[in-house]
Structures are given as structure tokens and as C-alpha cells.
Computed example of a mutant assay.
Amino acid sequence: MAGTQEAQTRPVKDWLRRLGTRIGLGIAVLGLGSCTPTSRPQLPVALNSYYTDEQPAMSGDGRFLAFVSNRDGTRSILLYDLQRKQFAQLPRLNRKDAIAETPSLSYTGRYLVYVASDRGRPEIELYDRITQRTQVLTGGYRGWVRNPNISSDGRYVVFETGRRGQWDIEIIDRGPGIELDRPNGS
């Protein structure tokens, strides 16, 4: 009697096992689809994700968060607006031929400095969100550079340099003629 009952339930168990495998494969395929690199995240979007996000820097007013991410298949600097809960556009900042790292923001996030490496040589670059232009600050500079940090008003950039065969600290004064980053233009 036990053998016939087991024989009757075997087709049901086999069917359930096949159904579970199909459902499991469907979930696995859906999971793989969500890890595929896409263009810039859609707006609005949550800050945290399944991507590698690192090297965060916050603007002085606490509104913007810059960080390095691989969300679109390459290491790029992203800027997240914490008030609007969406990513800010950074036209012409991230280049496919360069690796960007260690961002730093001025007070309102107008100026962003970072290290960009193309052709194996790191340079400190400054991006102005108003003009949407990038300026190389250490072009032709002798020695290695790393870890830039911009003052809250955007005038000074401090960084580490290996110019003398050891890590030292240097400061770039962008000059009195630049437009300073001040809250509400004050």
C-alpha cells in the first residue's frame, strides 16, 4: 500500500520540482538583468545600490554627495542631490579614456576636484558645474599627485605630491579673480 501511494505522489513531486526549477531560473535571469550596466540611473532614484560606490565627499552645505561608482560600466564620478533625491547631471565630466577618483566638493558643490588618470599619469582636474568645463590644474606637473581637496569657496586646492621622492602637501591658489563658491551668491 505504501508503495502505490508513493508511486501516485511521485508525478506530483516531479512536476513541483520542475516548476520550482523554472521559477528559480526565472528569478536568476531577472537578477542577472538587473546587474547589467546601463546608462545614467533614472530620476529619482535611491542613493544605495548593488553597484560598487566608494570615496564619498559631501558639499559644505550638506546638499550634494559626490562619489566614484561603476553604475554605468566604468568608474565614474556621480553627484547625488540629497534634497531632491536624484542624480545631478555632470556633462563632459566623465571620460571613457580616463579613470576618475577621490572627488572633493566646494561649499555648494559648484566646484568639484578629482584625480583623473589617462595614459597612466594622474592629474588633478577641476570641474565647474556652472560652465560645465574641466580644467587640468597639474598639467605638466613633475611628480605624482593624489587626494585633492578643495576649499569651501573653491579658491584653494590642496593635494599630496610625490615630487621630492616622498609624499608632501602642496596648495594651488586659483587666484583672486575666480568666481568664489558662496551660498546664495553672497
Rank of each mutant, 00 (worst) to 15 (best):
I178K: 02
R182K: 07
T38L: 05
P44M: 00
R22K: 14
R119D: 13
L112S: 08
A88Y: 09
G20H: 04
R164E: 13
M1N: 04
L19M: 11
I130V: 13
T102S: 13
G26P: 00
R163H: 06
R163Y: 03
L19G: 05
P56F: 11
M1L: 09
R121K: 15
V29E: 04
R110A: 09
V68H: 13
L25P: 02
P11E: 11
T138D: 04
P56H: 07
S117C: 01
T108S: 07
T21I: 14
D181V: 09
R119H: 05
F159V: 14
G154I: 04
R17H: 10
S106M: 00
T38Q: 02
R155Q: 14
R155L: 06
P56W: 11
A46R: 15
A7W: 03
E170Q: 01
A100S: 14
D168W: 11
R119C: 00
P44N: 00
F67I: 06
Q135T: 05
I178Q: 01
D173K: 01
D173S: 00
S152Y: 12
K85H: 13
R182N: 06
Y156N: 02
L180G: 06
R119V: 08
D168C: 06
R133D: 05
Q135H: 09
S104P: 07
R63F: 13
A116G: 15
Q8L: 14
W144H: 15
T52N: 03
I169E: 10
D118V: 09
G139N: 14
E101N: 13
M58F: 15
A46D: 14
A2H: 06
